[in-house]
């Protein structure tokens, strides 16, 4: 796995091995959770545990297949990731999630809007935050008042009768 340039070589692919491990881990979790399930007596036939086990078995096979494919380096080339934008966008989503419950839809969504714009290189925040707020508040008004959709309200939304 090389971060500096797209890996187009047919070398074993480290990241792909991680995927194989994750698939096997998911299969493990499914088997573990399903084996702990209490099956009611009515379902003596094909019960609620059969499908999970089948899916887990499939995932194990796929995990092996992925490992083989990783050895051969058969995954498509990847270009390096720029982590800055990802942090801004994920940060925006987390901030919105934690804000809307008490500060309301408009404030939370304004932060999301501004952070995403920042992630794409557009700022500064003191300019994008108000733009986001006006947009989010208008959306809140249209959907909550016009369409009776229940969207989270904060102090500002409560000002609107």
């Amino acid at each position: 796995m090389s971060l500096s340039e797209p890996s187009i070589s047919r070398r074993p692919d480290g990241a792909a091995f991680v995927i194989a491990l994750v698939l096997a881990a998911i299969a493990g979790v499914i088997i573990w959770q399903t084996s702990n399930m209490r099956v009611p007596p009515i379902q003596a036939r094909v019960g609620p545990t059969v499908f999970p086990y089948v899916i887990a078995a499939g995932l194990i096979l796929l995990s092996i297949g992925t490992a083989v494919s990783a050895l051969r380096g058969a995954f498509p080339a990847r270009e390096p990731v720029r982590y800055g934008p990802i942090l801004w966008i994920a940060g925006g989503l987390v901030a919105q999630m934690l804000l809307i419950g008490w500060a309301g839809f408009a404030v939370g969504t304004a932060v999301l809007f501004a952070f995403v714009a920042k992630g794409f290189g557009r700022g500064p925040l003191w300019m994008t935050l108000p733009i986001g707020f006006v947009l989010a508040f208008s959306i809140w008004f249209v959907f909550s008042r016009g369409l009776q959709l229940s969207l989270p309200m904060g102090p500002i939304e409560r000002l609107v009768p």
Binding site: Q96, L112, F113, A117, F120, G132, I139, F143
Partner: peptide
Amino acid sequence: PWLYAGILTFATL
């Protein structure tokens, strides 16, 4: 920037 900020706004809405 505006397009994707808008998409995420509407997606979360």
